[in-house]
């Protein structure tokens, strides 16, 4: 399979790789929202951690990804796009925009869906930790 230049670039130079601490540590931090989506047996697991200010602005984002090159690129791109946005703005990010930006072929669309899901899951986690009602419509699919 031939990859787009952008996918290759994200694969070789992934942006914002990492985490804000061990999984047990970030679990209790109210300024961090964690989204882990996918499953090892499906071949993709994405972990997105968002550092969010009290008024809902995403200050920083970190990701880790087990998956193909397109999955890595989708999650890397997602961290770039959410940084500096409010959570409501971040929830506007659609997987189709990721598909377009990375020129993903049809068989790789699920990678972009997973990236969108990881944003939703991380924001949900942050909301729960901060006692904010989770909008049902924003549930990960």
């Amino acid at each position: 399979m031939a990859y787009s230049e952008k996918v290759v670039d994200h694969y070789q130079n992934p942006r914002n790789v990492g985490s804000f601490g061990a999984s047990t540590e970030v679990k209790t931090r109210t300024d961090i929202g964690v989204g882990i989506v996918g499953a090892p047996e499906c071949g993709d697991v994405m972990q997105l951690q968002l550092k969010v200010t009290a008024d809902g602005v995403i200050e920083d984002a970190k990701f880790k990804c087990f998956g193909c090159g397109s999955a890595i690129a989708s999650s890397s791109l997602a961290t770039e796009w959410v940084k500096g946005r409010t959570i409501d703005q971040a929830l506007q990010i659609k997987n189709s925009q990721i598909v377009e930006e990375l020129a993903l072929p049809p068989v790789k669309i699920h990678c972009s869906v997973l990236a969108e899901d990881s944003i939703r899951a991380a924001i949900e986690d942050w909301k729960k930790k901060n006692g904010i009602a989770v909008d049902e419509a924003s549930h990960a699919h």
């Binding site: 999984s23 047990t24 697991v45 880790k64 990804c65 087990f66």
Partner: peptide
């Protein structure tokens, strides 16, 4: 592995 959340979990001693 630097990118892999599974490797982190393994390193933390979590059984996947």
């Amino acid at each position: 592995r630097k990118l892999s959340p599974l490797y982190d979990l393994y390193k933390e001693g979590v059984d996947l």
